[in-house]
Design a binder for these strands. Structure first.
Length: 295
DNA sequence: TCGAAACAAGTTAATCCGCT
DNA sequence: AGCGGATTAACTTGTTTCGA
C-alpha cells in the first residue's frame, strides 16, 4: 500500500469520481494519472474500491475511506498549526504595473480585514505564474492572460485593458492609423517578450490585418518600454491604464480598435476563505478602474 | 564515483463505453 | 448520436539501483 495512492483514492472518494478529483486536488495532476494510481492501489489490495459509472464506493472502498479520511481530512489543519498558528501568509504573483498601481490599495484593505496577514510579491508572466502555482510557490496570480490556463488552474477574469502605443512626446504620430497606412513601418517596436499576452494579442491582430511590424527590442517590463521610448529607441507597446499617466517624456496613443488584454486572477484547486476575500477585493478594485475608462 | 538500465509517475492524445 | 468520464497507448522525466 502506497500513501500517495491512498491520498489519490481519498480525493476520488471525497469528490465522487476521478475527473472531479482531478479538478479538486490542490496540485496539478491529470485524470489518467489518478486512474492509473487508483488501479495500482486496487491491484495491490486485490479488491475493487469503487464502481466507476455511476460512482459508488464498494464495501471495501467505504471501509478504506472511513479509515483514511480522519488523516487526510485534517492535513490542512496540522499544516497551518505547524506553520505557526495565526500567521496567514499570502504569496501573490503579478506583473510590475499591477504591483505598482493596484496591489498597494488592495493589500491595505486586506490587511485591515485580516490583520495577521503577511504577504510576498513576485513578478513575472502568465506561464511563469502557472508554473509557480502548480509548484505551490505562490497562492494567487493577477496577470494578463492569453489562451487557456494549464489544467488544474482556476481562472477568473477581472478586467479588460485596452492596448496603446507609447511614443515620444514630440513624435509626429498622432494616430495609430498613420502607422498602418505606411508601406513599411521603419520605427523600431519596443515591447515585453512574446509570451506576454500584451505582445501576443497585439502581434496576432497585426497578422490578421496583414501588417508587418515585428519587435526590435524586447524589454523585461512595461515600465522599461516607457523608459526606452522616452530615450528615443522607438515606439512602444503598452496598456492603457485609465488612472496611470504616460511615462515622463512620452504620450499614449490608444489602440481603440484592437482587442483588449484580459487580466485575470489565477489560483490552484479549491478556493479557500482567504482567497475568496482577496478575489472580492480585486473585483472591487477592477470595478473602480473600469469605471474610470473612457467608454 | 559515474554512467547505464530499470522503474515510477507524470503527460497528451486517442479510444472506449455508459448514459441521456 | 453526442457527451462526458474512464482507460489505454505512447511517450517524457526524474529517481533509484547496480555494476564497472
Amino acid at each position: 500500500m502506497n500513501v500517495h495512492h491512498l491520498e489519490l483514492f481519498y480525493y476520488v472518494a471525497k469528490h465522487h469520481g476521478i475527473s472531479a478529483a482531478a479538478r479538486h486536488i490542490p496540485y496539478g495532476i491529470q485524470q489518467p494519472a489518478i486512474s492509473a494510481q487508483v488501479i495500482n492501489l486496487e491491484d495491490s489490495l486485490g479488491v475493487t474500491l469503487f464502481h466507476r459509472r455511476p460512482f459508488s464506493l464498494t464495501q471495501a472502498g467505504r471501509e478504506l475511506f472511513a479509515f483514511i479520511e480522519p488523516f487526510f481530512g485534517k492535513l490542512s489543519d496540522i499544516d497551518a498549526r505547524l506553520r505557526g498558528g495565526r500567521v496567514v501568509r499570502l504569496r501573490i504573483g503579478a506583473p510590475e504595473p499591477i504591483q505598482h498601481n493596484y496591489l498597494p490599495a488592495m493589500l491595505q484593505t486586506l490587511k485591515k480585514r485580516v490583520p495577521e496577514l503577511s504577504f510576498s510579491l513576485t513578478s513575472g508572466l502568465q506561464d511563469v505564474f502557472e508554473q509557480q502555482l502548480l509548484a505551490q510557490e505562490i497562492d494567487i496570480a493577477f496577470t494578463g492572460i492569453h489562451g487557456k490556463p494549464a489544467p488544474g488552474i482556476q481562472c477568473q477574469e477581472m478586467i479588460r485593458i485596452p492596448l496603446a502605443l507609447v511614443v515620444r512626446e514630440r513624435s509626429g504620430f498622432k494616430k495609430a492609423q498613420q502607422l498602418w497606412e505606411m508601406d513599411r513601418i521603419d520605427e523600431p517596436l519596443l515591447c515585453v517578450p512574446v509570451p506576454e499576452p500584451v505582445t501576443t494579442i497585439f502581434l496576432t491582430e497585426l497578422q490578421r490585418r496583414k501588417i508587418e511590424w515585428y519587435p526590435s527590442l524586447e524589454l523585461a517590463s512595461l515600465d522599461l518600454v516607457g523608459r526606452y521610448v522616452a530615450e528615443g529607441f522607438g515606439i512602444g507597446l503598452t496598456i492603457m491604464q485609465p488612472d496611470v499617466p504616460a511615462p515622463a517624456g512620452t504620450r499614449l496613443i490608444p489602440l481603440t480598435d484592437f482587442p483588449e488584454v484580459p487580466y485575470a486572477a489565477l489560483w490552484l484547486g479549491k478556493i479557500n476563505p482567504l482567497l475568496e476575500t482577496v478575489l472580492r477585493e480585486a473585483r472591487s478594485i477592477a470595478g473602480k478602474v473600469s469605471s474610470l475608462s473612457p467608454a
